[in-house]
Design a binder for these strands. Structure first.
Lengths: 140, 140
DNA sequence: TATTGTTATACTCTATAACTATA
DNA sequence: TATAGTTATAGAGTATAACAATA
């Protein structure tokens, strides 16, 4: 008879739990900055680009514009982003990082990088680099 | 000034989207069998072991026992699992695969394996094996 | 008429609390 | 008293539909 397979051999399990574990690490690392992984993603999208409307940012994040409203409400309340009307099209809000948002993002990048390093510490550096490269090919 | 980083460089993004893409593939592959990835996980846990109670299966799956009720209701409705009272402890239900469930699981294993191969086809076999090994070390 | 932001609503997923029947 | 299964309920997360302002 066949033995029961180890669920851990299944790629779906491995990807799911790697992501769960990683997100837990980064959320913990970002918490002192008052943001979580989802917020960090939004800040990164807002940084270093031309000012964008809510809709454009939402599309880049892959979320609905109605979800974007609540996300921005929260980030604005935290003081890291600001909305202002687009002078050229008054239907739109231009969304930008505040100065505090820029500082928060800088600190978040450092914290996130450290969390990545902690997460990957269990494997040799070469394997970590290979993991990133392989995932990039699978996701693109 | 700094350029905007590619979000795809971020490990969290890569893990999340690798998992999303993979789950979409396996769900599609399993759909003709009437089950999804979550159902497949449950069937795999039930197979090749001593008969177990709902609670034991739920714990192995890492879900709440109340969530287990709805999952089993659905799988029982599909005819792939059966509940019967434990003669030794009538508070418990013993949960087992039906014959149809065994056949469904066999077919699901094949379909899942093919979906894995499709997913990994974008990278060399050696990279695919390395990915699995690395994830296993990171998750364990 | 179409689009942007917003609000109200609904849907999915999952957990906690309370109930029942057994132990 | 405690445990297994169940039910009712609630919370997070996200989507669809409807609305107001603007194009």
């Amino acid at each position: 008879m066949s033995t029961a397979p180890d669920p851990h051999d299944v790629l779906g399990y491995l990807l799911k739990h790697a992501h769960l574990r990683f997100t837990a690490l980064t959320d913990t690392a970002l918490r002192p900055l008052g943001i979580d992984s989802k917020d960090f993603g939004a800040l990164r999208v807002l940084a270093g680009r031309e000012p964008a409307s809510q809709l454009q940012v939402a599309q880049r994040l892959g979320i609905d514009r109605t979800t974007m409203v609540a996300l921005l409400d929260e980030l604005e309340r935290k003081g890291v982003v600001a909305r202002r009307p687009d002078p050229g099209d008054r239907r739109r809000n231009i969304v930008e990082l505040t100065e505090q948002g820029e500082r928060t993002l800088d600190a978040a990048r450092t914290a996130y990088r450290e969390a990545e390093e902690d997460f990957l510490a269990a494997v040799p550096p070469q394997a970590a680099a290979q993991l990133r490269a392989t995932l990039r090919e699978l996701v693109e």
